[in-house]
Computed example of a mutant assay.
Amino acid sequence: MAVNVNVKIERSFKVACSAKKAFDQLADVASTVAMFPKLDKIVDLGDGVWRWEMEKIGAAGLSHQVKYTVKYTNDGSSKIDWNPAPGEGNAKVSGGWVITASGDKACNIAFRSTGEFDMPVPRLMKGLAEGLVKSEFDAQVSTFIDRVKAKLES
């Protein structure tokens, strides 16, 4: 039996680089996604659609590999979004980046992501599965944002 786990994360941070540099990096899906921890594979399916395949995660006898497909779009200067796209997977993820200039050599970046994950666990273990997914997702996003910030400021 599968249980459904929902996760929502929003973070804002400031970086010491131009808004253009930030946008150019974040709009480069392959390069940016490569900084995401525990990513097994990112597959370009064409037309802005990408399939994420994460490494298996597990604890307390539970093991699960998250896979999902998203379509990336952007406005060409300050906003990048991703939304679920048809394809294989066991999750639906959406989110985006919003970049706001703060002078010539600094910008603010807002990150948001929501995910809906189907976990193949007995209903009695739903609480454990929810805690595992939420803490793992939060930790991975924190590491990802740290890596993005370091890349943008290098």
Score class of each variant (00 low, 15 high):
112 R>T: 15
29 V>G: 11
73 T>I: 13
74 N>R: 06
46 G>V: 10
132 L>F: 05
17 C>P: 04
1 M>A: 15
131 G>Y: 01
130 E>T: 14
5 V>H: 01
22 A>E: 01
143 T>M: 05
34 A>F: 08
12 S>G: 13
64 H>W: 13
61 G>T: 09
108 N>K: 09
145 I>H: 07
152 L>C: 06
28 D>H: 11
60 A>M: 14
97 W>F: 13
8 K>H: 12
142 S>P: 04
20 K>D: 15
11 R>M: 03
104 D>K: 14
134 K>A: 14
75 D>T: 11
131 G>M: 05
83 N>T: 15
80 I>M: 02
107 C>S: 04
111 F>V: 05
79 K>C: 12
67 K>E: 14
62 L>P: 07
58 G>K: 02
131 G>H: 02
99 I>A: 10
18 S>W: 07
150 A>D: 13
19 A>W: 01
92 K>I: 03
16 A>V: 10
41 K>W: 00
134 K>W: 04
149 K>W: 04
87 G>E: 02
106 A>F: 07
91 A>K: 00
142 S>G: 15
95 G>A: 07
9 I>Y: 03
24 D>Y: 00
90 N>H: 08
106 A>G: 12
114 T>K: 14
53 E>P: 00
132 L>R: 00
34 A>S: 15
5 V>D: 02
90 N>C: 06
21 K>F: 06
76 G>F: 02
102 S>C: 10
105 K>L: 08
3 V>Y: 00
2 A>N: 10
5 V>Y: 00
133 V>Q: 01
21 K>P: 02
31 S>M: 08
5 V>E: 02
40 D>V: 02
29 V>Q: 11
7 V>T: 13
146 D>H: 09
14 K>N: 13
9 I>H: 09
82 W>Q: 07
24 D>L: 03
90 N>R: 04
4 N>P: 03
28 D>N: 15
95 G>M: 02
119 M>E: 12
68 Y>G: 03
115 G>D: 04
71 K>G: 01
98 V>L: 14
97 W>G: 01
61 G>S: 12
44 D>T: 09
122 P>E: 12
124 L>W: 11
146 D>I: 05
154 S>R: 10
70 V>A: 09
95 G>Q: 04
79 K>D: 10
70 V>T: 07
25 Q>W: 09
132 L>Y: 01
61 G>Q: 10
36 F>R: 06
45 L>S: 11
124 L>M: 14
149 K>F: 05
32 T>M: 12
13 F>R: 09
67 K>Y: 03
43 V>M: 13
80 I>D: 00
15 V>I: 11
16 A>E: 09
128 L>Y: 06
60 A>R: 09
